[in-house]
Amino acid sequence: MELVPQLIVSGIAAGSLYALVAIGLVLIYKATDIVNFAQGESVTVGAYMGWLCITQFRLPYFVAVVLVLAGSALVGMIVERVAYRPLLKSPPFTVILATLAVGLIIKNAIRLVWQDTPRTISGVFSAEPIEIGSVLITPERLAIMFTVALVVALLVLFFRFSKLGKAMRATAQSQEAASLMGISVPGIFSKTWALGSALGGLAGVLIAPLVGINTELGAVLVPGFVAAVVGGFTSIPGAIVGGILVGVLENLGGVFISSSFKQVVPFVVLITVLMVLPTGLFGKPLRKAV
């Protein structure tokens, strides 16, 4: 039982990355009603960009992070323009398939350029665990948690105080009213995709030093989808709580049930939530409208 605090802390560390992916999903979904099944690939893109910056261009890690944010945002905008803008009036179903296709395209494009060879980058923080109280944690995990917390704080400020942030919130609530204010809704869509992809890319460059880089990296953060659902898919705090919850449950399940089935835990959580509480922990109940 003395393991429990340790499991919870490392669960939070993993969960903070899930949360980052989940926030990206939630932002895009709230603004555009699209669940981006290619969000995992934006994680992969971020990791490869980081690798390119650090090992090929010999840039410092921090510079790489900034470039990854910008590059991922650009990829997000391009993908929105090319793949999703033409499908604005298509049924949700078609758009889901389109995001899956985009995911495949990105994955295979990367594979074509850099093959399946795994890559690595080293972070700036040590992977040597330190002891805090009774809990062991590596400085690089701590740095990730700190970074995610910082990003969340910046996002909160952005949405609360900046003009663009307010326009994004407004558009998410009513596209029609937003356009009556003079807000260009397509412009907001494009910027939202940029932001969502940037968050995915950030998750990629953060996790890359820990697990290495390959074209399947996106799959590592699939529990981020579960986190978004647990949080109700429309709320940023929900995504954070969901992420941490999934990270912790996964760790506990891995130890107390079976380590080989650890990966199933998030999906059991997902199906349970969908069956019992389809609007998640933070979603608002909807009255079925006709």
């Binding site: 003009k163 307010k166 919130r169 407004a170 609530q173 029609e176 009213a177 937003a178």
Partner: peptide, 14 residues
Amino acid sequence: LLFAELTVAENLEL
């Protein structure tokens, strides 16, 4: 068609 989850002041700003 107000932005229901935004404050009154934010609605005016928009």
